[in-house]
Design a protein around this nucleic acid. Structure first.
Lengths: 345, 345
DNA sequence: CAATTTTTGGCAACCGGTTGACAAAGGTTA
DNA sequence: TAACCTTTGTCAACCGGTTGCCAAAAATTG
């Protein structure tokens, strides 16, 4: 066999051969005007049932597929939505990507993916580039500042996940329910001193979560201290173990699951027993949170649902609906596994 | 026929306002013909340096951005590549997606993502849909049959990951090195009876891995049995635990890490000590493989590199290079962690 | 300085759809 | 049967670039 050779073909431009039927071909075959074909295929009811049938048959025979670019040119509609995530490596985004892809493709939209590599500048560039080729854009945990986002939103429908910005449709997990559950559960298990391991300073979410923890701790009469982490990863979690021990806390809630996992690994390596001596609660319930021993107790954010909701909002806006007046909140809930429990020490 | 421009536009279609400068606007501002602008902006050296400068300045002033659709229409080039994965949920693909996105965007290509939900039919549909809008397509662990893939490849550049198909450029991990290392290591630790837990019957890879295990076991004078799993997930791993025990094997190599993790969880739950009583080796080294206790020993497939290679092949083909004559092989290697070791029982 | 070659810019015809305007055909009603 | 309202298909002008062909301008050569 030869390779993929387009060698000897008369080279019809880039396009393949069989896939190149146009509305003009259909028009000729059906004996009507191209514009009639266009209407038959996209404006339901605009042509008579009889003509419609003839045209549809012809289209089927030629196995016609619209050329998305030709359609996009005059209409501006591309049937695609863009998604920008801060870091494709970060499992937090896996579920968001998945939710968005699934929901989008169910409504015949294609997902275009880009990564900002945690850099606000890259993010702005990627966003601008994508914006011109998609019908709407989703920003998951964006790092760029509010004004940039508003500027994008002025051009085309934009939805933001994991951050709240006035005047832009947002989908954010409502951390309060999950956090209250977590803190109450810890209090019920005899803990009195709680530590919160924070995430990146510029993260909008890390502040919300700390507020939630502080408020819930106050309500449950626990003391709460905030510790900083160098980065929101497994490694960052390992590094903060020392501070956690020094703080004297017997229960820890971390900004995300990766920190929790790293922290747990490091504490266990140092001989601590989890949860007998210290309870650990993560955040998000990412893939792999239940691989650890003990499995990680965590406040689950419905990230897949965030992706789904964001797409839904976008598609609704594209149909002319108004954007939701205020942020859409999705519920969080405590998932109790083995890493939290009664204090035995 | 003078004024090409619809001068004082009240509302331009869907497009934003500032982003709507066209080559006609630039042409007017620079006092040249639109075609000259087009050439200045895309055919380096085709116009004089002086005109070039004037046009570039005008473009900058209007902050011009090409309209990708208008460009795609006559040329067929879209600057995008499509990636179809069997299951976005499966972490195996995370690294592939990431490698592809990173490599693509470094060369100014955008990644378009679709999922087949493990269904061959959905996969074909998605592939056909994507193919018309992208410059090239990557199929990661495709489920459709060889002929369908060849048909796609006849239309546009296609690269396949994790499967080998005559006449289509493929990137496959070469399992032999990693497997030999794994089997030798197990033999050196006193194991004599080995079990391989297979993956989906229709998976090309599961057969390759079994062949590798069988051959390496023979070489190292171990006995090897093949066990079937119901599905290649954590749950599937749990379900196969019974069979593993019954087989009498003291070392297990699984088709993928998820199976290994499930298997280990179930065995540990039943009181088995890993690795003292049984050694477990996974495959791929997915995200989270080191979250377990003990951390999972596994044969690492460089999945990110597979994504990168596939994109590179595609882009090279788009530049007119030939597709590689035979499958590109990437090396696998054993990553020894805690789940394998000396047999103490 | 004329003849010839090379640059360089302009013209116009696409790429494949969409859509407003309009007239022909068909149906109603007086 | 005439007058009038609908329905339905056609015409033609876009959308915003790309590119083959050609002639004017510039550079080179004799």
């Amino acid at each position: 066999m030869t390779s993929t050779g387009t060698a000897s073909t008369p080279t019809k431009r880039g396009r393949g051969d069989k896939s190149s039927a146009t509305i003009y071909d259909i028009a000729k075959l059906a004996g009507v005007n191209p514009s009639t074909v266009s209407r038959a295929l996209s404006k339901p009811g605009r042509v008579s049932a009889k003509t419609q049938k003839i045209i549809e048959d012809a289209a089927a025979e030629l196995n016609y597929q619209v050329n998305p670019f030709a359609r996009a040119l005059p209409t501006g509609r591309t049937q695609t939505i863009g998604l920008i995530v801060a870091d494709i490596t970060n499992p937090t985004f896996f579920d968001i990507i998945r939710g968005a892809e699934t929901t989008g493709s169910a409504r015949d939209y294609t997902l275009v993916l880009a990564e900002s590599a945690e850099s606000p500048e890259t993010e702005v560039t990627a966003a601008r580039r994508l914006l011109s080729t998609v019908d709407g854009l989703i920003l998951a945990s964006p790092r760029m500042d509010d004004d940039h986002i508003r500027a994008l939103a002025a051009d085309k429908p934009v939805a933001v996940i994991n951050r709240e910005i006035q005047g832009v449709p947002c989908v954010v997990p409502d951390v309060n329910k999950g956090i209250s559950e977590a803190v109450r559960s810890l209090a019920a298990n005899g803990h009195e001193k709680l530590a919160y391991v924070a995430g990146p300073k510029q993260s909008w979410m890390t502040a919300r979560r700390w507020e939630g923890v502080k408020a819930a701790a106050e309500w449950s009469k626990l003391s709460a201290v905030r510790l900083e982490s160098s980065k929101p990863t497994v490694d960052g979690g390992r590094q903060v173990a020392r501070d956690v021990l020094d703080s004297g806390a017997t229960a820890v809630i971390t900004y995300n699951d990766l920190l929790a996992i790293g922290l747990m690994q490091e504490l266990q390596a140092g001989g601590m027993r989890v949860p007998d001596q210290i309870s650990i609660v993560g955040f998000d319930d990412i893939f792999g949170a239940d691989f650890t021993t003990p499995a990680l107790t965590t406040v689950r954010s419905p990230l897949g649902e965030c992706g789904t909701r964001a797409v839904t909002i976008l598609l609704d806006m594209l149909q002319g609906h108004d954007a939701p007046g205020e942020a859409v909140r999705v519920e969080t809930e405590l998932v109790v596994r083995g890493s939290s429990g009664r204090l035995l020490a």
